[in-house]
Amino acid sequence: MSGTKKETGFTFTIDGVEITAYAGQTIMEAADEAGVYIPRLCDHEGLRHQGSCRVCTVKAGGRSVAACTQPAAPGQAVENETPRLTKMRRDLVEMLFHEGNHLCPICEASGNCELQAMAYRLDMTEATRFPYLEPCRALDASHPDIALDTNRCISCGRCIRASQDVDGKGIFGYVGRGIHRRVAVNGENLADTDAEVTDHAISAEVCPVGCIIRKRVGFAVPIGEREFDHGLIGHDIEEKRK
């Protein structure tokens, strides 16, 4: 007798590699378990899937879908690391760099930043074809333990979901529409909210960039010895395959 899990399990392929999935799993969840990395920025383990950054776009059934929200389907052939998809992801990441003010040399998140690490992984090294938008965005240092530098925000909404779903607070939320959509604080500034440095939303893992800053710890680990200085983003997932 095989286990009950086996009965509901099915297989599909990503770039020709056979992946086992269970009913209700997304393409990305099944891929992560199997050790196949699909690049992502707005998705984070433990948070509800949102599917907004589109960096995880894969081809499934001839259509472009967000791997973090699309349920895996039996027998489906999914394309992940094709030159076309990699180029599209690189363009998306490049546009995120252009939409905000992302100056890696002055950013305390450099080396721990998922946006930067994604640019490394996707070989974002060619001369840019896009203009820099250079928006004037606010810095909120009102809170005694936390600062927000919204120049670096990529509107992924991970802090919003972490605050609502994990902390049960709702400190952050989206405001505006279209290109004007931004992550905002639910109050005049951060000091007016019940944000605490111990919140999951404020923790180092939730903000993928250097927007949410925990004061007085920024350079405890020096540049050059940080997470993505020692390995490409996603290598922890890819190592499961070996």
């Binding site: 760099f97 003010n101 100056l103 890696c104 040399p105 002055i106 001369a127 840019t128 820099y132 250079e134 928006p135 004037c136 965005r137 606010a138 810095l139 120049n151």
Partner: peptide, 25 residues
């Protein structure tokens, strides 16, 4: 060849391009 971040994307000097709440940075 553009060598380094300043040549590539403006770098530190480009901090003067966008100053918080300023119309004339």
């Amino acid at each position: 060849i553009a060598l380094g971040q300043c040549a590539i994307m403006g770098g530190l000097p480009a901090m003067r391009n966008a100053i918080m709440h300023s119309d004339a940075p």
